[in-house]
Write a protein that binds this DNA or RNA. Structure first.
Ligand SMILES: [Zn+2]
Ligand SMILES: [Zn+2]
Ligand SMILES: [Zn+2]
Ligand SMILES: [Zn+2]
Lengths: 133, 133
DNA sequence: CTTTTAAATGTTATATTATTACATAACGTT
DNA sequence: AACGTTATGTAATAATATAACATTTAAAAG
């Protein structure tokens, strides 16, 4: 599944490519370390690219881990509704793509009648692999 | 609704009382500043109390804000399932107490068949007051 | 009541995560 | 070319969180 990313700037592309290749969420200073050989030397350069990539939905921040993961779900580019599964043992993170869940949460309204176009849901448990141990 | 908290230690009680009185989520260093007159001088003392209070469900961490709020929902003492509404304008945070939502998420299983006893959900939007403006 | 163990505290230093401030360069539009 | 917008470079610093070690308090066991 090839995604267009022509609109990304130089730093944004370097940093997106790194995160996209990583099998696990990456932390900002780990990203910084990994892109120093490409000329990105300062934290701010990383955070600026991360902010933009989050804004356009190419990556997501795993809030409970202060780490970033590439989006696995094309619809995130137009919405801000995210759900993840996080293994508390090996820290594996998977983006949950479930239309029913998304619909349920998007239509959810609380006791004040308020509803929401944006949410972030993080599930915690043990992944298949870790459960076997 | 009086809650028992006899089991809290001195520092835990000082810090819980402060958070419980606050109308808004409190950040760790703001807590530290506020309890220095009571003899709690170092960040670690605050973080240790926060860790314990989170563990026993008396407070929750709002992950997207790095801030802490007192639990509004007695059932959180036995579960780790939390949901919040966050106003993106005034930063007001409310804990959502909704049995249907809790049931739906607790019973949710992802495409791998995995399910979860623990989750954190943060909804974002504008509160009533901010919507009027 | 005394011994033992676990939980909590105190203190210093340090690690990790993120932003402010200011200057410059590249890009897209008219 | 002139303009406004977005992105970049760089240095300094703020904000959040933990490591390491010594000591004290409280709970549990004998
Ligand atoms: Zn996504
Ligand atoms: Zn695992
Ligand atoms: Zn609660
Ligand atoms: Zn508001």
């Amino acid at each position: 599944m090839v995604e267009k990313q022509l609109n990304l700037s130089k730093n944004q592309k370097i940093i997106f490519d790194l995160i996209d290749k990583s099998p696990e969420p990456m932390k900002a200073y780990s990203i910084l370390f990994n892109v120093q050989k490409k000329g990105i030397k300062a934290p701010l350069q990383v955070y600026r690219a991360l902010d933009k990539l989050v804004e356009i939905g190419k990556i997501h921040k795993i809030e409970s881990r202060n780490a970033f993961i590439a989006c696995q779900n094309s619809s995130c580019q137009i919405s801000k509704t995210t759900a993840f599964s996080i293994c508390e043992s090996c820290e594996k993170v998977t983006e949950i793509k479930d239309n029913k869940l998304a619909k349920y949460l998007t239509n959810f309204s609380d006791n004040t009648g308020m509803n929401y176009k944006k949410y972030n849901l993080e599930f915690f448990g043990l992944c298949k692999k870790c459960k076997r141990k």
